[in-house]
């Protein structure tokens, strides 16, 4: 238990290293961050699932309050890079 705390503690408190993040990725963190909130977490999604979600938001295949307006600002290639980066940072599965 204590060990778990030690492992999670710093990861939660510290920001991510965004020096290699692809364009736009760091802005996703403003809503999909380290903490559990009222917003959906991306933590249990794989990079492929995030990309598929964004594609569906972009085309309108998936209804949303907000994400369709954001997804339309990114190309499929940009979206893929973002999804893969989030996964390498532990912010997705």
């Amino acid at each position: 238990m204590a060990l778990l705390f030690c492992l999670c503690g710093p990861a939660l408190a510290d920001p991510l290293d965004v020096s290699q993040s692809p364009p736009g990725a760091s802005a996703c963190l403003g809503c999909h961050g380290a903490t559990e909130t009222e917003l959906p977490s991306l933590k249990n999604l794989s990079a492929v699932e995030i990309e598929a979600g964004m594609d569906a938001f972009r085309t309108g295949a998936r209804e949303a309050t907000l994400m369709n307006r954001i997804a339309k600002g990114f190309t499929p290639e940009e979206t893929r890079a973002i999804a893969q980066w989030l996964a390498t940072q532990g912010r997705a599965k």
């Binding site: 920001p15 009222e38 309050t65 907000l66």
Partner: peptide, 15 residues
């Protein structure tokens, strides 16, 4: 959206 606003505030202030 009112709930998501709360979620945004928690996320951003934590970051």
């Amino acid at each position: 959206e009112a709930q998501y606003a709360e979620g945004w505030y928690k996320t951003i202030t934590q970051e």
